[in-house]
Structures are given as C-alpha cells and as structure tokens.
C-alpha cells in the first residue's frame, strides 16, 4: 500500500492542502536528488519546483501502478536531465573544485569532492548513485523511475561507485 495513496486521491480532486502535504513529504528527497545531480543549489530549487508543478498538473495520469514517490522521481529525473541539457553545463572539473577548497575539515571536504566527482559521471551513473546511495531507494523503484531493468540499475551503480572510488582515491585515503 502506497503511504501517499489517500493524499494522491485528494490531490486528484484538486485539493491544494493534500498537494502541499505531498510536497512537504517529498521535497527534501527531490531537492537532494537535484542538488547532487547538478551540484547547484539554485538549479536544485528550480528543478524541485518544476517537478512538483508537473507532478500535480499531471496527477490525473498517475494510476497507482507504482508508488507515488517513484512516479515523482521519474519526473524529477526528466526535469534534471532537461535542465542539464538546457544549461549544457560542462561537468565541474574536479581539480578546479579542489583548488577552490582551502583546508576544511575532512568529511566536508570529501563531500564536496564527492559532489564534484558525481558531476563528472555519465548521466545514468550519476542518477543511480544519487537514487540508491543518497536517497536510499531500492533498485526496483530506481529501475521503474529510470525506465530500465533492475540488473541495469545494479550494474550501473557498481560501475559508478568504482569510478567514484577511483576519482576520490588518494583524497579518500588522506581523509580516513
């Protein structure tokens, strides 16, 4: 049973309070996904807003075949892809990020490195890392949101982590 089912039903009838509750429940995860995917708080704000606007405008098309959160994330994925394509944003060079960082505490520094490294990953890798490791979504839901198989989702995750580990290698050692 989808924990959002009742609210979604009310949202379908145009209940703005139900929509607001759905927004409050899921805005953190959508924002986290957008932020980790773009590395930019302003873009993450816009993606979050656009995702919910699209979701509520099209909530009639959500038939409950998956959890609402999964369906919402499929919209967030598309919004993020569109945004990144529109901006034609080049991946932030990892070295530039390192140079911009002075000597902060190791975990924060490593997190920034991680975010910068995420931005260098291919789109599919980045999506699956954020969904699985950041948002703790199971592969079944990731596969549905990304329109791929569970096997592809798992494979991409492990390839992505391997790349991240390789990118972060020395710094990770230093921070431990």
């Amino acid at each position: 049973m989808d924990p959002d089912a009742d609210l979604v039903e009310q949202a379908r009838r145009g209940d703005m309070k139900a929509m607001e509750q759905l927004y409050r429940r899921h805005q953190g995860a959508v924002y986290a996904y957008a932020l980790r995917s773009t590395g930019r708080p302003d873009a993450a704000d816009e993606i979050t807003q656009d995702t919910f606007v699209r979701a509520f405008r099209g909530v009639d098309r959500f038939r409950g075949g998956s959890k609402f959160s999964t369906w919402l994330f499929s919209i967030a994925v598309n919004q993020t892809r569109t945004r990144l394509a529109k901006d034609a944003r080049a991946a932030v060079p990892l070295e530039a990020e390192v140079e911009a960082t002075t000597t902060p505490e190791p975990t924060g520094w490593l997190r920034r490195r991680l975010e910068a490294a995420l931005a260098t990953l291919p789109e599919g890798y980045r999506e699956v890392v954020v969904m699985h490791d950041v948002l703790q979504m199971p592969h079944e839901e990731i596969a549905e949101a990304r329109n791929c198989t569970v096997g592809t989702s798992k494979s991409q995750l492990h390839k992505a982590r391997a790349k991240l580990r390789a990118l972060l290698g020395d710094e990770h050692e230093r921070a431990r």
């Binding site: 490593l110 991680l114 490791d133 950041v134």
Partner: peptide, 18 residues
C-alpha cells in the same frame, strides 16, 4: 565509507517552494 558519505543528510531547498 563512500556509500555512507553519499547518504549524509542533505539540506532542503533554500526557501519554502510551496
């Protein structure tokens, strides 16, 4: 460690978007 680092709680939007 990498997995745990990624899972660290992220902040929400910079403002209330509702």
């Amino acid at each position: 460690d990498l997995k745990a680092l990624a899972a660290e709680t992220s902040t929400g939007p910079s403002r209330d978007l509702w």
